[in-house]
Design a binder for these strands. Structure first.
Length: 454
RNA sequence: GAGAGAGUAGCACAAUGGCAGUGCACUAGACUGUGGAUCUAGCUGUUGCGGGUUCGACUCCCGUCUCUCUCCCCA
């Protein structure tokens, strides 16, 4: 009787080759984020359920991984009459990195006035995973708290764009919209306020399902066909308009709605401010962008690539979230890169090149050499700065070479009785077959030369 | 949460009610201080699990678990 040894669906084991790519990518992201002045933060994998509930909308609440009460507390809870799912859990795995940031901010008195933090950690969602989707996945967030200045928007967009540029992904766009603007559009279409949420979810799909698909989607959600048609007309961007021309078009259509003035002005300002940042050339006004999470209040963004349907990351302004933890309202804006999707695109395009993980050298030994001598030789090579693995047994030397090949080690250092007696080491380039016997110190130098050349 | 399909060796797959197999991988050997190619030999299974039908079940039926795909939602 054997038990299932594959990890739970939607989770993965990361083998050494996987980690080489992941760490490389993480390194680029950290470096770029730090170049924009962001500082690192880490928070616990699980939070009090009360911290998480009610921040993401109903759908989000359902997708929270909950942790049951422990021991006696669980037994007592189970005995309560009319016990429900909600009574059995008091902790949940974090669902994103933004809510934990808001909690930390509310809990910590002496953070800088403008707290610019980055955070690369896994999050969990109790979803059924599809292609490129997981129940445990890494998010790479940057956020700026404490300012309503659109400089913050421009900076988070710029940092994200710089990551994509560094990775050689230049065919991305950053779609830009505004939560308040969406409200006005829905109002202008003549939809009742209570259909706002359902309409937002529908229009977010326009680029995926097309106009006819959207009409069906409206019908399925009980949205009045005439209002739906009006909304479609409002959000659909004509071909060939510049970003400011698209804003002019929207301003014209929303002239009768005073509430539209501010969001339109903010988007216009943001375009102007970002013109001087890395994000400038990539910004694209898109009135169909909605984003699922409930806490956004102002500008919202999403990175997309032609390579992949769906987004590579997203973010926006959330001026109300921190206030849910703390009396005073604290404005904030953030952006998150979808690490797993980015990895997928990088792999599909072969953008990783050679990322090496393993040792440089395999130390091989003949049976007439004592293990202590092999370890001594290995230690000398390591002190010279090489990554060295010692073959633990003494089969035929050819077997040892074959093992080196199998773990992609390029060089062998060979220690036999002859070398040991003379204080020498034979080194072999397994790619070219070149082999020489040198005094140990020189062998180390030559190996370094080889590994740097390759 | 809804619908469809699939589970056989470490991996990829055969076996359409009659001895559970092939390839790759793995191990050993083909001049005992030199690998990759080739050849030879060998190892690998409670056919996801439980029950039923049958003289006989990988195969048919029921249940269950897991995985994949499509919805839903999302990064």
């Amino acid at each position: 009787m054997s038990i299932n040894t594959s990890p739970p669906s939607g989770t993965r084991d990361f083998l050494p080759d996987d980690l080489a790519r992941r760490r490389h990518l993480e390194g680029v992201i950290r470096r770029v984020y730090e170049s924009f002045g962001f500082v690192p933060l880490e928070t616990p994998a699980f939070e009090n359920l009360s911290t998480l509930l009610g921040k993401y909308g109903d759908e989000g609440d359902q997708l929270l991984f909950r942790l049951l009460h422990r021991r006696d507390k669980l037994a007592r809870a189970l005995q309560e009459p009319g016990v429900g799912e909600k009574d059995l859990a008091d902790l949940g795995l974090r669902y994103d990195l933004t809510v934990p940031l808001a909690r930390v901010y509310a809990n910590t008195k002496d953070l800088p006035r403008f707290f610019k933090r980055y955070q690369l950690q896994p999050v969990w969602r109790a979803d059924r995973p599809g292609k490129g989707r997981y129940r445990e996945f890494l998010q790479c967030d940057i956020d700026i708290t404490g300012t309503t200045s659109l400089v913050a928007e421009a900076e988070v967009c710029g940092a994200v764009v710089r990551v994509f540029e560094e990775l050689g992904l230049r065919d991305v766009t950053v779609s830009l919209n505004h939560r308040q603007l969406l409200k006005c559009l829905i109002q202008a279409a003549g939809l009742p306020a209570e259909q706002e949420g359902t309409a937002l979810v529908a229009i977010d799909k326009l680029d995926k399902i097309g106009e006819d698909g959207l009409r069906k989607e409206f019908a399925a959600r009980g949205i009045d066909p005439a209002a739906g048609e009006k909304l479609l007309h409002l959000i659909k961007r004509p071909e060939g308009l510049t970003e400011t021309a698209e804003l002019d078009r929207l301003a014209g259509l929303l002239a009768a709605i005073p509430a539209a003035t501010t969001p339109l002005a903010e988007l216009r300002d943001l375009l102007a401010i970002a013109a001087g940042s890395a994000a400038g050339p990539y910004l694209r006004i898109d009135a169909t962008l909605a984003r699922g999470l409930g806490y956004y209040t102002g500008p919202i963004f999403e990175v997309r690539s032609a390579a992949l349907s769906g987004s590579l990351g997203g973010g926006g302004r959330y001026d109300g979230l921190i206030g849910m933890f703390k009396g005073a309202q604290v404005p904030a804006v953030g952006f998150s890169i979808g690490f797993e999707r980015l990895l997928l695109v990088m792999e599909e395009r072969g953008l990783f090149g050679k990322v090496a993980v393993g040792p440089d050298v395999l130390l091989c030994r003949f049976p007439d050499v004592q293990p202590a001598d092999a370890l001594r030789a290995a230690e000398a090579l390591r002190r010279a700065g090489l990554k060295v693995e010692v073959f633990p047994e003494t089969p035929k030397i050819g077997k040892q070479f074959a093992y080196a090949e199998s773990i992609k080690v390029r060089f062998a250092a060979i220690l036999g009785a002859t070398e040991a007696q003379e204080g020498k080491l034979s080194i072999k380039h397994l790619g070219t077959g070149e082999q020489l016997t040198l005094p140990a110190a020189e062998a180390a130098i030559r190996l370094k030369e080889w590994s740097q050349a390759a």
